[in-house]
């Protein structure tokens, strides 16, 4: 695999080369390489296969906005816009849909029993008819699934996959879709965690 001088995580987290956090992060070379390779493989694919580049980046941007980590959000919204100049309105719509449906997570229900005391209510996202008209059935179903798996994954059922299949998703596409959702959840957390670690070492700097 290629040697990565700096990875997306370092750029978004603002890791200063040679700093203690940089050394600690780079010491985990395997995880670091895995993260960068996943970013390339999922969001800069050489062959998009069963899920188009626009779909990949639209879902990634949506999940990033739901997760609320500012740098990851800005980067993935920009990546969607840069895919094609005509996508600026789509990026704006994705951003608005995610903002309007966001809710602190994780929430959801357990099967009835001792864990029911831990059930937490939260919104079930359903794309409105006018928005569905703009996004199309395929991307609408993908965003609904991305919202579920990001914010209340314990509510997932076979019906969640059936809804994707009904909207035209193949199994191969679904497998890539859930990997993209998982990856952005990972990315948002690594960046949030490392940024906090870095900020804690510089108490005189405001955390933005």
């Amino acid at each position: 695999m290629t040697h990565h001088d700096t990875t997306l995580v370092e750029r978004l987290a603002g890791v200063v080369p040679g700093s203690p956090i940089d050394r600690a992060w780079r010491a985990r070379a395997e995880a670091r390489r895995f993260a960068e390779d996943a970013y390339r493989r999922l969001l800069h694919p050489q062959d998009p296969g069963p899920i188009s580049l626009v779909e990949r980046r639209a879902v990634a941007a949506f999940v990033a906005v739901l997760n609320g980590e500012g740098r990851t959000r800005d980067h993935l919204l920009a990546l969607l816009r840069e895919t094609d100049p005509t996508l600026v309105p789509l990026a704006r719509l994705i951003e608005r849909e995610a903002e309007d449906s966001s809710h602190p997570g994780p929430y959801g229900s357990f099967p009835a029993g001792p864990l029911s005391a831990e059930d937490l209510d939260g919104p079930v996202y359903a794309v409105s008819y006018p928005v569905q008209h703009e996004l199309g059935l395929r991307l609408s179903a993908a965003l609904e699934y991305a919202h579920l798996v990001t914010l209340h994954p314990r509510d997932a059922t076979p019906d969640s996959l059936a809804a994707l299949a009904k909207a035209g998703w193949t199994n191969g596409g679904i497998a890539l879709l859930v990997d993209i959702i998982g990856f952005v959840n990972f990315q948002s957390r690594v960046v949030a965690g490392l940024r906090s670690s870095i900020a804690a070492r510089q108490p005189h700097l405001a955390v933005i």
Binding site: I174, F186, R189, L194
Partner: peptide, 25 residues
């Protein structure tokens, strides 16, 4: 220390990824 905290962040973030695959599929 810094290495241990970085590892904790990575462990939590990687599981946030994997658990979404297992729960989602």
């Amino acid at each position: 220390d810094d290495q241990e905290i970085t590892d904790l962040i990575l462990s939590a973030a990687l599981t946030s990824w994997t658990a979404r695959i297992t729960l989602g599929l």
